[in-house]
């Protein structure tokens, strides 16, 4: 062994010498072939008493599995899930424990059997090359040549080229058909249910909100009028149109000249859909006027058109321009003037 090691390290040195200027790191103390550990005879091979014990242990494990199966069956009947939700707990617990015992009993039993009682000797299998022998390779080439000769693939140019054409074009109809399978997105990402005159209503009841209801420091979770009564596509529409309504002191608002008319008496409405990845931003702090997104902690300043003050969001929350109608209810002046929610390709 020692002589062999020495040879190897010499070899390594020579290697290093050749590539001295390179970046290759040649390990000086690389791990050699540890060889096979000496065979250790198991207790179960030495003593029939131990072998008998191991046999009993395996049998007990398999019997435990049988008990587990019956227990799971019994538990399913004994702890039914009823109208009372708390029954789910006992049902899941006992059914699950029974099935665990039933599966683990088989698994552990089988492994224990293999480890203690099945033949125990070391086997070494030499690796062989993945490359086939020369004969096999020659035979394979012969087969391809013969097939080409018999089919006339190389000889008959017309057939070959028309076949290439047919193969290239056959996926086309499928591509066109698959393209039309899903819903056509169209401009649905750019518009929401809000339009001129839509009343702001409470989520989930759909009761319209009067400007006088929104007292200082209040937060209203708002959906557009008509959404509460929808049946189809209700969630899709809500996911785009959800709005948060807040009233601040007028002097706290720092509004752009161009957006001065978008608020009403200190009441401002912003899209609740985060511009980062679309979580509902609704953690409003009354005194800091910060809106926090629970997913990635993007923070928006409500006093300054919800500009981003912290976190990964890159755009302010879109503002819904609002006003009041003749009866004093809050209404939208128009839809959002930009797409709500996270960025998308053509935005």
């Amino acid at each position: 062994m020692a002589g062999k090691d020495l040879e190897r390290s010499k070899e390594a040195e020579g290697f290093e010498h050749e590539f001295e200027s390179g970046l290759a790191v040649i390990s000086q103390d690389k791990i050699g072939d540890p060889g096979l550990a000496p065979h250790r005879v198991r207790m179960t091979d030495k003593s029939p008493k131990h072998a008998k014990n191991a046999e009993r242990q395996v049998a007990v494990l398999f019997l435990l599995s049988v008990v587990g199966s019956f227990f799971a069956l019994w538990a399913y009947v004994a702890f039914p899930i009823t109208e009372d939700l708390s029954t789910v707990r006992a049902n899941n617990l006992w059914l699950g424990l029974g099935m665990t015992l039933s599966l683990l009993g088989i698994g552990i039993g089988a492994v224990h059997w293999a480890k203690t009682l099945m033949p125990d000797f070391e086997v070494s299998e030499a690796r062989h090359q993945t490359r086939g022998s020369e004969d096999v390779r020659a035979a394979a080439v012969e087969i391809v040549k013969l097939a080409d000769q018999e089919s006339g693939f190389s000889r008959r140019k017309l057939i070959r080229r028309t076949m290439y054409g047919a193969l290239a074009l056959f996926p086309l109809p499928a591509l066109v058909v698959f393209g039309d399978l899903g819903p056509v997105v169209g401009d649905s990402l750019r518009h929401t249910m809000w339009k001129k005159g839509t009343r702001l209503t409470k989520d989930p009841t759909g009761i319209p909100i009067k400007a006088s209801d929104v007292t200082l420091g209040s937060v209203f979770h708002v959906i557009p009028e008509g959404l509460a009564e929808m049946h189809e596509h209700k969630l899709e529409e809500k996911a785009k149109a959800a709005v948060l309504l807040v009233r601040l002191n007028q002097e706290d608002l720092k509004e752009d000249e161009s957006k001065k008319g978008w608020s009403y008496d200190g009441i401002v409405a912003y899209s609740k859909i985060c511009t980062h990845v679309g979580c509902p931003v609704a953690l409003y702090e009354q005194h800091t006027h910060h809106l926090l997104c629970p997913c990635h902690q993007s923070t928006f300043d409500v006093t300054e058109h919800c500009k981003v003050v912290f976190g990964p969001a890159s755009r302010p929350l879109p503002q819904l321009p609002i006003s009041v109608d003749a009866e004093g209810y809050l209404i939208a002046q128009s839809d959002f003037l930009e797409p709500v929610g996270p960025s998308f390709w053509e935005r």
Partner: peptide, 13 residues
């Protein structure tokens, strides 16, 4: 009342 930073949920809300 909306204590500290909690917003107010008045009786019309």
């Amino acid at each position: 009342t909306g204590p500290q930073n909690m917003p107010v949920f008045n009786d019309s809300n």
